[in-house]
Amino acid sequence: MQVVVAPAGWAVYVVLLLVRAGDEVLVETGYWDLVAWAIGGAVVVSLLATLAVGGFDGAKPDLRDREIDGRAQQIGNSLLVAGALVAMVLAMVDVDGFWIANTLYLTFVSSGLLASIAQIGFRRGGVPGW
């Protein structure tokens, strides 16, 4: 579900931010409330969509599910580290907080997306040995 909802939330956020900015300078546009709504909205939509497709049917994940989740999360985390490093460099060179916050938001979205894609790949193509 995350593979669709998180990027969709981010895309909606970008559109609303650009609309709000209009002809003004982008970095001077208020963004924190839009980020909060986009993240909160994505969480709520994810939960509702999971309920709608019967994701909480009580089926316990087995050892293969846990292994796939762990491997996928590990791949997603690599992007999270890279994004955090980029944000740190931006902070070091005194870039506006707007760009740092947006770099971090994009990092959360893309690492979640990468983890979801990896999970789908492992489920369809198989789990490689260590």
Partner: peptide, 17 residues
């Protein structure tokens, strides 16, 4: 075995060790 059917299928098909 206490696993999902998908896991049995993946093992049978050599997609999961």
């Amino acid at each position: 075995l206490g696993v999902t059917r998908q896991t049995v299928i993946a093992i049978e098909q050599g997609r999961y060790s």
